[in-house]
């Protein structure tokens, strides 16, 4: 099963990102585990400075904003 991690300090954009991914996964019927990391020390270990950022199976694939729907679908179908 795929794991998608959303890095963010708890702002609205981060919440929207999680929601977007969960909804898209449901729509596509893809089984995915969505995690949220809010601890700054942990976010630092990904070497990410602009949040929200998205990590797909351990690799940072997006940072600095809410991803587009197409991007999310791309990750889910990859």
């Amino acid at each position: 099963m795929k794991t998608i991690t959303v890095l963010g300090t708890g702002c609205t954009k981060c919440k929207n990102t999680v929601q977007l991914i969960e909804e898209s996964a449901q729509g596509l019927g893809v089984d995915v585990k969505v995690e949220k990391v809010e601890d700054p020390a942990q976010i630092m270990t990904y070497n990410v400075m602009s949040t929200p950022a998205v990590v797909l199976d351990g690799t940072v694939v997006h940072k600095g904003g809410i991803p587009s729907k197409e991007q999310v679908i791309g990750w889910l179908e990859s």
Partner: peptide
């Protein structure tokens, strides 16, 4: 950058 990124930015600069 969005103000909610202040902390990651702070840590990124610091590290």
């Amino acid at each position: 950058f969005c103000s909610c990124s202040s902390i990651p930015v702070f840590l990124g600069f610091t590290s």
